[in-house]
Amino acid sequence: MRVLTEEALRVEFKKDIPEKYIVNEDLIVTPAARQYLKEKNVEFIVKRENTEKEDECKEDEFEFKEIRIPEGKITPKYISYYSGGAFEQKPEYMTHLFGNKLVYKDDPRIIFRGKLDSLQSEILELQHLSYVKDVEKLSMELQEVLEYVREILRCEVLSEEYSREKLFGLTEGELRDMSHFPKKYFGVGHILPHYKMDEIMLKLNSLRSSSREVELAAVKAFKKENGIERVDIIKALNRLSSGIYILMCKYKAGEYR
């Protein structure tokens, strides 16, 4: 059974991107391949075996849904995202990218998801510390940070656009301005971390640096030969580190007392 993957299309389109791409209906086309065709504005056409006519796919067929298998065909239990090869059992060294598509556990996308998972753990630990130390307002704002990160992960896994525009009610421009000019907004200068800071401030700083690591992991995961995919996620992560730095400035300014 033949499977058309995003990687195969990238190789095929390396020299020239066609206006139309025609496949037989017995070819399995992965969701990533469909999305890639859509991004390149390539008209995707399925040639039906029982007619002479070429039927154009509907727009919603590009969505990340279960792959449509022609009648009488057997759906492989697992499929390699890289080669399209089928597996009866999931190898221990592979994991799900989406659906039944498997990648190596050190695939950049999986590493990125792991970084997001670790970031959530750090947020929860700091939330608990803030709660124990009776800094409830910070705990609540960290909850918003947690939901922000969880939404990034959900959108990445489901291949949805990240559309959340604000954090703490602040726009991208406001987050950037406040993080660049803390003296203007909070009456404190830029923070240079040191060992005499209290535990909450040190953990906020760790959270900020971890968010930067997640952003770098995202760039590595979505960097392709012809540019960067998922700019929406990378942009959201850039806003996140600014937001966490603002929490540091607010804490230093005594706004949580």
Rank of each mutant, 00 (worst) to 15 (best):
E63H: 15
V103W: 03
G85S: 13
S83D: 06
R113V: 02
E66K: 11
I110S: 12
P108A: 01
V103Q: 00
L116K: 10
G72E: 05
L126S: 04
G114K: 10
F64R: 13
M94S: 10
Q89H: 12
E125F: 11
I67T: 14
P70G: 06
F87N: 00
P108Q: 14
Q120T: 09
F98C: 09
I111M: 15
N100G: 12
P108H: 14
Q89T: 13
R68W: 03
K101D: 07
S83E: 08
I67D: 14
L119N: 00
Y93H: 15
L119D: 00
G85K: 15
I123G: 04
I79A: 00
L116N: 12
Q89L: 14
G85I: 13
P70Y: 01
F112H: 10
I79T: 09
I69F: 14
F64H: 09
K115H: 13
Y82E: 09
R113I: 13
N100S: 10
P70L: 05
M94K: 15
P91V: 08
K115Y: 03
I123C: 06
A86D: 05
L119M: 10
Y82N: 03
S121V: 13
Y82F: 07
K101V: 10
G114I: 07
K65G: 06
K65V: 05
Y82P: 01
K65A: 05
S80K: 09
G72S: 01
I111L: 15
D106L: 08
I123M: 07
I79C: 00
F64I: 11
S121I: 14
I111H: 01
K77Y: 02
S118W: 08
S121W: 10
T75K: 15
L116A: 12
S121R: 10
F98N: 11
P108I: 14
L97S: 11
Q89V: 14
Y81F: 13
N100L: 03
K77S: 12
G114C: 04
E92Q: 07
I67S: 03
F87M: 07
T75C: 09
Y78C: 04
E66Y: 08
S118C: 05
P76L: 05
K90A: 12
E92T: 08
L102Y: 06
F64E: 13
I79N: 00
